[in-house]
């Protein structure tokens, strides 16, 4: 397996890894859900992780976002111009603070809060006010609050949700809920955005607007994207590099055209002959 580790001091160029896992393994009571996964997300690119159901994709997300503590291996973030950060063993909220944001396979919005509040909560980690600020509303807190609301509105305007800013999240149509979840993740100002099957449950039209959304996010925000997806046409059309996982192991990696023809991938998806 080719070692794609960058030489030190090169961080900052497009294509260099911004997120990297080395030998990532997760064992659940004897069952190896992930086995030595080495994966890299290139800076300012869209990388995809695909695999059949139950192959370990979501477990991988849970491992790098701190919901599970990986049994073995390293997760490293390379922020541009800053020293690398080891993410293994950190709490989920700390990892988000360092610049990883995610969406969930089954949408997890704050249903009884408004659309704007959902995005505002995404700003949490970039804000400072604590108990004191909340109770006394000093100038710094008021300014911070104003800025956060402004920033959130801008995001909603950019991604076409501002007309529903004061609706409860649960009242949104399904496609918009998916969109809101992505916008909420963007509000945390991530370096890497992790999308867990964003096209699940969307119809063809919605999937196509999701494709536009993903490409426009990559162009507009300086963010790298790691995408887990089932929808092959979506994955093939947006991502620069694809990793394929089966039974917790990487079985292939490469650009979309190679992956499409790889016999191992075809076998994993279609089963043994």
């Amino acid at each position: 397996m080719a070692d794609l580790r960058p030489a030190a001091g090169q961080a900052g160029h497009a294509g260099d890894p911004v997120l990297q896992t080395r030998g990532l393994s997760m064992v659940f009571g004897g069952l190896e859900a992930l086995n030595n996964v080495d994966l890299e997300v290139g800076r300012d690119t869209i990388t995809a992780l695909i695999g059949p159901n139950g192959s370990g994709k979501t477990t991988f997300f849970n491992c790098i976002t701190g919901i599970y503590r990986p049994t073995r291996g390293q997760v490293t973030l390379f922020p541009a111009g800053l020293p690398a950060i080891g993410l293994k063993g950190l709490a989920p909220d700390v990892i988000t603070h360092h610049g990883l944001a995610r969406t969930f396979q089954n949408i997890r919005l704050f249903n009884n809060l408004t659309v704007l509040e959902n995005v505002l909560i995404g700003r949490h980690t970039r804000m400072k006010a604590g108990l004191w600020g909340a109770l006394f509303r000093d100038r710094a807190t008021r300014r911070e609050e104003r800025e956060a609301i402004g920033h959130s509105f801008e995001l909603l305007v950019s991604y076409g949700l501002d007309h529903m800013a004061n609706e409860l999240a649960k009242n949104l149509p399904y496609g918009d809920q998916r969109r809101l979840e992505i916008v909420r993740a963007l509000a945390t100002e991530p370096r890497v955005l992790l999308l867990d099957e964003p096209a699940a449950g969307l119809n063809i039209g919605e999937t196509s607007s999701l494709r536009d959304l993903i490409t426009s996010i990559r162009e507009r925000e300086r963010v790298s994207i790691l995408l887990i997806e089932h929808d092959m046409s979506l994955v093939m059309s947006v991502s620069r590099k694809i990793y394929v996982i089966d039974y917790g192991r990487l079985i292939a990696q490469g650009p979309p055209d190679e992956i499409r023809r790889d016999p191992k991938v075809i076998k994993a998806y279609l089963g043994e002959e």
Binding site: D93, H97, R108
Partner: peptide
Amino acid sequence: LAMREDEVACQAMGI
């Protein structure tokens, strides 16, 4: 409020 609504998602928001 986020914590009340969804504990996992609230942590993913950096709380």
